[in-house]
Design a protein around this nucleic acid. Structure first.
Length: 470
RNA sequence: GGCGUCUUAGCCAAGUGGUAAGGCAUGGGACUGCAACUCCCUGAGCGACGGUUCAAAUCCGCCAGACGCCUCCA
């Protein structure tokens, strides 16, 4: 398996530290609002990475944090006149609702910054002891120049960084590049006691601490959005490696951004969408499918057109699977009839195997989900063109199982839950069938229209009338 | 200014040296009472120019355009 490693800017063969276990940390959201579609991308992408590892038989220890103390949270809480904890609590709940909808598996551990303050104080203390950090008037800074490899992830030269004029002048710091580990409390802000007085942690330290606590000094994969490369991940490396003197993470994975109408999504541009807003127009599964239709390291452009295309494509996959399930039901009722594969079907099974291999190869190549999806569509075509209620039960089972498992690796929910029709609806369908039999098509169409208005779409197939909710 | 990325059919998107996957949309056809679903058919020489090579979308150079990071940000 090959993974593109931001650290080396190359695709590298993936070799886990432990043979069958993977330690993976993904930087989580700051919980001050509903998650937006940009947040959804790393959630879906790295969940898919995890699912693929699990499919390959690895046990994945997946840690993702909640940043629940930060300027934005405090500002927002003050606006609403509530406690920051209440605010973050609320949006963690909303996060869970959205991620569940997106079929993102819960992390093995979901640590919260505010519950890990002790660990942060400990690590900051360790950094001070090792002369990698210093305190000034209640603020603790990381001594950036004490970590000679600073810049190795973002490929920035430490001297060029300093030459950049964007770093604000601060007389307290020994060096303009030094960044905050702990800051003193301000009026109206949450605070914790520390050896340096009351205050709260800087942003970067939390991930270093939580990753180390739950996954150990060295981990396999550290992931997040590409904007985190600098300074967040660069600083994490500096903090952690200064303490442990070991390599923090072997592979650094970063997803590219999502654009809206080819522009960076931002509130000021007015092209900002939360996942919740999108969910009003498209099921979560369509958003997930859309996000996986482009390689994770390429920018993806969100638009109505692309969502429509994703919706239609996903529907086609769903229709094929529903059809297979329907055929299987018929076969299971007639248990005596052609159970075993025919010779012709054996050829098809081989073809399915080949597409499965193509799927795997695409995923092995740095998780090329866009390419992997191709294999799913080929299986859909194979099923639609070759299979029917006359196929052998084994053939139907193999095809259905294969399609479902490939979709499951991508976290695509394609099998809808069984629904029962209200009696009134059933009666209308029966009446319509009678009308059709009597060639009273006007009446039949009228009933179909009535049901359509109720959100029930009828399809007259060879196997009888089918319906689905729209 | 520094670092980096991208440019493939109407739209989306794989493909990184041997002569362009797939999806969506469009048009035509089959099926259908009509639809829907499904199936078949339908389209590009890969931003421009120059170079390397027997051979380039794929390597090199240059130009144009789009974009990201360098500052809170997924």
């Amino acid at each position: 398996m090959k993974i593109y490693n931001t650290l080396t800017r190359k695709k590298e063969e993936f070799i886990p530290i432990e043979k069958e276990k993977i330690r993976m940390y993904v930087c989580g959201p700051t919980v001050y609002n509903y998650i937006h579609i940009g947040n959804a991308r790393p959630l879906v992408v790295f969940d898919t990475v995890r699912r693929y590892f699990e499919y390959k038989g690895y046990q994945v220890n997946y840690v993702s944090n909640f940043t629940d103390v930060d300027d934005k949270i405090i500002a927002r809480a003050n606006e609403e006149g509530i406690d920051p904890t209440q605010l973050s609590e609320r949006y963690i709940k909303e996060f869970q609702k959205d991620t569940k909808g997106l079929n993102v598996k819960p992390a093995t551990v979901h640590p919260r910054a505010t519950l890990e303050i002790d660990g942060m104080i400990e690590m900051i203390t360790e950094l001070i002891e090792k002369k990698h950090a210093y305190e000034k008037n209640g603020t603790v800074y990381f001594r950036t120049r004490s970590f000679p490899q600073y810049g190795k992830l973002s490929k920035k030269k430490i001297d060029e960084l300093e030459a950049g004029s964007r770093i604000a002048v601060n007389d307290e710091k020994e060096d303009p590049l030094d960044f905050v580990l702990w800051k003193p409390k301000k009026e109206g802000e949450p605070f914790w006691n520390s050896p340096w007085g009351e205050g709260r942690p800087g942003w970067h330290i939390e991930c270093s601490v939580m990753s180390r606590k739950y996954l150990g000094d060295e981990i396999d994969i550290h992931a997040g959005g590409e904007d985190l490369i600098f300074p967040h991940h660069e600083n994490e490396i500096a903090q952690t490696e200064s303490c442990t003197e070991k390599e923090f993470a072997r592979y650094w994975m970063h997803n590219a951004f999502i654009n809206v109408d080819h522009k960076k999504m931002s509130k000021s541009e007015g092209n900002f969408f939360t996942v919740r807003e999108i969910e009003e127009s498209y099921p979560y599964s369509v958003l997930r499918f859309f996000l996986l239709s482009v390689h994770y390291r390429s920018p993806i452009n969100f638009s109505k057109e692309s969502m429509e295309a994703s919706k239609n494509g996903l529907t086609r996959i769903q229709t094929a699977i529903e059809q297979l399930e329907y055929f299987k039901q018929i076969k299971e009722k007639n248990q005596m009839q052609n159970i075993k594969l025919t010779d012709q079907e054996k050829v098809l099974v081989q073809e399915i195997e080949e597409w499965n291999q193509k799927f795997d190869m695409a995923m092995e190549d740095d998780f090329n989900t866009a390419d992997a999806i191709t294999a799913i569509f080929e299986l859909v075509r194979l099923a639609n063109t070759n299979l029917s209620a006359n196929s052998s039960l084994e053939m139907l089972q193999i095809t259905s199982f294969k399609l479902l498992s490939l979709c499951d690796i991508l976290g695509l929910e394609v099998l809808k839950k069984k629904e029962s029709l209200e009696q009134e609806v059933e009666r209308l369908i029966a009446t319509r069938q009678e009308a059709r039999k009597a060639k009273d098509f006007a009446k039949a169409d009228e009933i179909r229209k009535t049901l359509a208005d109720m959100g029930i779409l009828l399809e007259d197939t060879r196997e009888g009338v089918k319906w689905k909710r729209i």
